[in-house]
Design a protein around this nucleic acid. Structure first.
Length: 489
RNA sequence: GGCCCCAUCGUCUAGCGGUUAGGACGUCGGCCUCUCACGCCGAAAACGGGAGUUCAAUUCUCCCUGGGGUCACCA
């Protein structure tokens, strides 16, 4: 049995798309499951669109997701280089092999001739698609005046028969060869086109299984032919259905956040992204929530669905919530730090007692780390930032006396913890024939500035006696003043 | 249009000839309750259509329909 060698081969033309991340994930899972290697290869042969910045974004995205590669950029490996533009010598060598074997030829047709043939095709058929260039150089009888003149290398595609394979997710697939055209393998400047570059790389890098998006289905027969023309056996193939938007079209920016790093910036956890992506198109019985280890253990191609899967932000949020709650409170605190900094709480430490005390409650009301930061903020700020509606509704004179009473009551509670606070306040309510309705929302707003928080006793305990008393008193004053303002106005 | 792929609740899916067609998200009720959540309980919700094979089709075959992909000197 040969060792598993899989690859992820993005082209650095922007962010790492969430669909690409899923392809990377499935490859990574397969490699890790079998103790194999994941090769990261940068397909930067489109010089118009490839940028160094995008390469960094791809690498950062992979690292953030925790998808480590065994060979590739920044770490090297035996089968490098791992940037296609650095491999032109290798492509030239293999192109020569193909020509020598009679499976490829130099085509000196000019762009004008090509455009002309295309126009003729359109005139005859009324359509742009379906054009297949019949190169006059194909059979080798025509000799160029200058062999070094500008030319491309074309594949001499077989015109009859079929090419097929057993796809690990799609099953048996067969393409008729007459659909193939003599596609360009190498440009005049020696830079390969996708099918040739990918094939030569997969071959020379010893890839045993090619797992990629099913938009590459149609490329597979050519690549298989290329392998065979080179006297090699093709690898196994697994084509993942693409991720669709809610409208069934290819997922794009207009549907959702598609860049991996956008999820980092929104405060999603890498494990959550991994978990959601894995479950999108793959299943393992009734299980929805997976740790990385469980994913590696359970993953297999037999349960990868053949159907395109629609992206569902709600389900994603659910998975994120579950993953967030599976973290220890300490880990959540640490992870939330950057998001606290973003809202002006950059000097809060991960082991801040108030933060640590708040997180167990806040996390039940949070989806993202940004929510954790926001939900913890009023425990950490000196000043209460009031929600306007809450302030208008509850900072009213009729609540002032109760707020003052509770403040005074709190002054005497010892220890100032959830249970004693609860006992004291309940006793106070009973003695005065009050219910929560009479004062609780006002106290909540006074203490937090908000109308929705964890339980009041918890909020008080986390805030501590001094802050609780101070905020309740300040709230009482505010409530009283609101009344005079209204009367004056 | 040619070629290829796909088809179970709104969504992600389980199912691999005989099931009350299961789970999850979402939705809708209810419980809990100081607000908001969490949690718990319950409900509605699917095999695209037509032939065929079979004692029996969601499951196997074919056709139709629908959706998607692709037809570059992009990847």
């Amino acid at each position: 049995m040969t060792d598993v060698r899989v690859r992820f081969a993005p082209s650095p033309t922007g962010y790492l798309h969430i669909g690409g991340a899923r392809t990377a994930l499935f490859n990574w899972l397969w490699a890790r499951k079998h103790g194999g290697k994941l090769v990261l290869r940068i397909e930067d042969t489109d010089r118009e669109r490839s940028t160094e910045e995008s390469v960094q974004i791809v690498l950062d995205s992979m690292r953030w997701l925790g998808l480590d590669w065994d060979e590739g950029p920044e770490i090297g490996g035996d089968r490098g280089p791992y940037f296609q533009t650095e491999r032109v010598g290798i492509y030239a060598e293999y192109a020569e092999k193909l020509i020598a074997a009679g499976a490829a030829y130099r085509c000196y047709a000019t762009k004008e001739e090509l455009a002309e043939a295309r126009a003729t095709h359109k005139a005859a058929t009324g359509q742009d698609h379906g054009f297949r260039f019949q190169s006059p150089w194909r059979d080798g009888s025509k000799k160029p005046d200058d062999p070094d003149a500008r030319h491309v290398i074309r594949f001499k595609a077989p015109a009859t028969g079929t090419t097929g394979w057993t796809d690990l997710v799609k099953g048996d697939i067969e393409y008729p060869n007459d659909q193939q055209q003599d596609q360009v393998l190498v440009r005049p400047d020696g830079v390969p086109l996708y099918n040739f570059g990918a094939t030569v790389d997969d071959l020379t890098m010893g890839i045993t299984l090619v797992a990629r998006g099913d938009d590459h289905l149609v490329n597979t027969p050519v690549q298989i032919m290329l392998y065979r023309a080179l006297g090699q056996e093709p690898p196994a193939f697994a084509h993942l259905p693409m991720i669709l938007g809610p409208d069934g079209q290819k997922l794009s920016k207009r549907h959702a956040s598609v860049g991996v790093l956008e999820y980092r910036d929104k405060g999603y956890l890498p494990d959550a992204v991994i978990n959601y992506l894995a479950r999108l198109g793959w299943s393992h019985g009734d299980q929805e929530i997976f740790s990385r280890e469980e994913l590696i253990e359970a993953f297999g191609w037999d349960h990868v669905g053949a159907t395109g899967a629609k992206y569902d932000a709600k389900k994603f949020a659910y998975v994120q919530e579950e993953q967030l709650r599976s973290l220890s409170d300490e880990a959540i605190c640490t992870a939330a730090l950057p998001f606290l900094a973003e809202i002006g709480l950059g000097d809060v430490a991960a082991d801040d007692a108030r933060l640590l005390a708040a997180v167990p409650h806040v996390k039940l009301r949070a989806t993202s780390l940004a929510d954790i930061a926001d939900g913890s903020s009023y425990f950490l700020r000196d000043e209460v930032v009031f929600d306007e509606k809450g302030r208008r509704k509850f900072m009213k004179p009729k609540f002032a006396a109760h707020l003052t009473s509770v403040a005074e009551l709190c002054q005497g509670i010892e220890p100032f913890e959830v249970e004693p606070i609860g006992d004291a306040i309940k006793a106070w309510m009973e003695a005065n024939e009050l219910t929560f309705k009479h004062w609780a929302q006002a106290a909540r707003v006074a203490l937090s500035g908000r109308t929705a928080t964890p339980g009041l006793f918890e909020v008080m305990a986390i805030l501590g006696k001094d802050v609780t008393v101070a905020r309740l008193s300040a709230g009482a004053k505010l409530a009283q003043e609101a009344g005079t303002e209204t009367e004056a106005g």
